[in-house]
Write a protein that binds this DNA or RNA. Structure first.
Lengths: 208, 208, 208, 208
DNA sequence: GATGAATGAGGTTTCATTCAT
DNA sequence: AATGAATGAAACCTCATTCAT
């Protein structure tokens, strides 16, 4: 993963192969779903023999798990980094919204898997990973909740609702609108300004 | 659906059987997911022979489709009814939030399926149904959007964002918090007041 | 198994099918060995679909286990019956030798499996059954040992060796000569008189 | 096998490697059986690459064949040597019993394979080797039979049974009791005196 | 009309064997 | 000459679907 340039040629080659396998798997899983993709298909798309897949992953579930968890890491790292800037609460939330939008834009296929897993809608796959990813999602939301909490404490935000609840609502509202755009970009163009959602949360809809 | 009491005894009996099959299927699908439930299991739980299932549904997918679409009808009917009261926009949205919360409370198993399908997270099942349910969901959201639009028109709401976008955001924020509560009711007790989410949308978080 | 004529037609039919599956399996396993027989082959030979085999047996090992244990039962029942006649020790051993010879003659294919399993030579198959059959064989040998022991007690036999050891030696000597005959009946015709082996054990080779 | 010290260094090195491969294979095959050992395992245990194994043996079966046949040679050589001493028949048989016992004690792993093969119980492996080893065993038994025959001719032994038959019975009785001891040494301690079996054969069980 | 036994296509997984390095 | 990564045939097993009873 890191220090890739210090690896032997052999090891670099292995990493490249692994990445190709995971890329093929991501494409297929996100298009057709875990159960509608056979390892045979993945092997073909990645241009390896089936047996070769099994040198890298113990079995189908293991491959899927590796795929989802690694992508989760990248996803959460990117967003966590965005909200760790030493800004005030409002600016942090803006960073969060922008980072998340960027991740959606740049890695659409994974987003589908991620939402399926993190939203518990994925009881379609064997339990376990499901639970793990959801837990990580919950933990991540704590970070957003902490921003709201801090904002409430120094009186920047009204004490209108539980901070965790606010985090969940904001996060989900973003997912939904981004998803809408993913599903039918022509019909539901994504708002030019990703901050729109925050404006609602911040200022409210009703004239004061 | 239609006037059940005008049917012959034979036809009424058929409808009853069908309902029992779908009830068993709903339970199993929502617990284990489409691909982890066999028709054999459903037949057993419904106390019919497999062959009998095939008298009512062409195949597994057809059974699933019927299940989801019919439940969708009931779900949407209930909520549509709530927002068709001759109230003002704010009250309509409150009715919507309450009706939806009530549906979540009363038909948890279906909600899981519904979210999986309507959120596009359900590419786990053969494509098609997916698309259909999502489309219906989009159409339903138009009704909510219409409320926002009307509110904006008569200046009750700020013209802060596209009404459809507002509908999506509100709907999704509700789903997420309700889902949170479904997944771990003890850890994330549902806010006593379902209106909380509306308060945020209406008044905003930042002190004016 | 018993009271077969009291079963329903359906149940009798099931038993018949099961027997046909086991018969095909016995033939193939005894000719080619556990690992060189595929369930596909067994299904073909028994003229059923593979899936049907799995309605009767959980998996390949289970099928094999059922086959071996049921045949063991029949084998041991037949021989146990022979030595339970109220004869003196010499006559009991003669009955034993004759009964065993008869079983070898009448169920050659099973004998091969049985020896493989009971002699511990069958580490080729997953452990477990192996151990179970061997244990049963040991237990059975106790019965023969008891005859020797009784004979020694009432002074019919010399106290030349541990009775269990005598049982093992006699049993094995029989197996070997019967096996010889099974392998190449034309080259090693089985001694006309199955009692020969007993004569050696009883009277010895060296002139007194 | 041949004069090893006349070989070039290169050739001696090769022989050493081959021996190591066969040693690893013997260990694994005798513990887990032919079909439960992969060439990969053997290569690892022997600390060679798989490809190297294929430089020495055409395929898995060939490796197994070489292993069994070479061990057979050593086994038969040792015992043949024991019975070629210029003793009388009784003494020769005593030598035979002792030599065989010694071989069992010193090369347990091979014994398991040998019995599996020579007893025809090993149809678990592709037919062929089976037959070959059994044939060699039969031929070897001729040597024991010859001793009995000679003993009968010069009237040392009663003419109670076919000499070959006697050889088979004695050989097998020994195997069984030795095997018993191998399987569960604590439960079935090997008779202190390996000659016990001969005493039975020579003097018989029944008081004259 | 209802049944559920029988089917067999298709999925996952292993491992003997090859061959480029 | 030695290596071991890559291969893919073939095994086991499941389950949606059919159809004779």
């Amino acid at each position: 993963m890191m220090n890739e340039h210090k690896l032997s040629r052999r090891e670099r080659e292995k990493l490249r192969q692994r990445r190709e396998m995971l890329a093929a798997a991501l494409d297929l899983f996100s298009q057709k779903g875990y159960h509608n993709v056979s390892l045979c298909e993945i092997a073909e798309k990645a241009e390896f023999a089936i047996g070769t897949l099994y040198k890298f992953f113990q079995n189908k579930e293991d491959l899927y798990r590796a795929l989802v968890l690694e992508q989760c890491d990248r996803f959460e790292d990117a967003i966590s980094h965005a909200i760790e800037q030493p800004d005030d609460e409002v600016e942090k939330l803006r960073n969060y919204v922008r980072a998340k939008t960027e991740r959606f834009r740049s890695n659409l296929p994974f987003i589908r898997l991620y939402l399926a897993e993190s939203r518990g809608a994925s009881f379609n796959i064997k339990a376990g990973l499901n639970e793990e990813v959801r837990q990580r999602h919950y933990n991540f939301l704590e970070k957003i909740a902490a921003i709201f909490e801090s904002g409430i404490k120094n009186n920047r935000f009204k004490n209108i609702a539980d901070p965790y609840y606010l985090a969940v609502a904001l996060d989900s509202a973003m997912d939904a609108s981004l998803l809408l755009w993913l599903d039918a970009p022509e019909r539901h163009p994504y708002p030019e300004d990703p901050d729109t959602i925050l404006d609602i949360f911040f200022k409210g809809l009703i004239h004061p």
